[in-house]
Amino acid sequence: MDINKAVQLDAARALITALEADDDQQAQQQLVILTQSKESELFHEVGKLTRELHEAMSNFNVDSRLVDLTTNDMPNTRERLNYVITTTEDAAHKTLEFIDNTLPLASELKQTADNIEQSWHRFRMKEMNADEFRSMSKEIEAYLPEVKQHSDQIHANLSEMMLAQGFQDLTGQVIRQVISLVEEVEDNLVRLVKIAGTHVEDKPKNDKPVDPIKAEGPQINASDNPNVVNDQDEVDDLLSSLGF
């Protein structure tokens, strides 16, 4: 650029001298030199811009993680979020169903207890004849095993309701994965903005080493993946095949 500037200065000085000396031919010649040097500067700038654009485009291509994110991780995330919906829905239905099954048991117990209480009161007030007393005795005799049965059933139903709350752990693991994906997308978008604006400083790593036992949380499409077991029976089979 300095050489160019020197050429321009020389030409400018020579132009003034030529004009003062009324040397038209010399003035014309110096003008041509000046214009040419300006043009070459313009070409240089255009060249520089072209190269920058080319580099930006290549950087854009190099960032395959972003492509991977959009083609693989995004659809995968959609599946994960759908898994969260189905899992929470199932858990809610399961819990509500056990509540539906439990409420009548409690009502029945209360109803029979009310009846017996009334009869008992009449018995204590000596308002009961022998037949009525025998009938009350039978009622009490039938009621006691019913209390035991119903209580067992209520206990079992409550245990099931408690187990259904495991959805919070399962969906929580999946939501954590989605959060980390969102963070990664954010990072990549910031990088993309940097590339679009100026040069990219750091190229992303493309190949993450694969760890076969890395914790992944619940498998979303277990039945589509032969490397994943589907239930407790398959776990037991696998372990016993290994001699455990």
């Binding site: 693991q173 036992i213 077991v229 776990v235 290994l242 455990f244």
Partner: peptide, 13 residues
């Protein structure tokens, strides 16, 4: 655990 990959179960064993 919710981890159900064969490699994981074998590793744990």
């Amino acid at each position: 655990t919710a981890e159900t990959k064969r490699e994981q179960i074998i590793t744990a064993a």
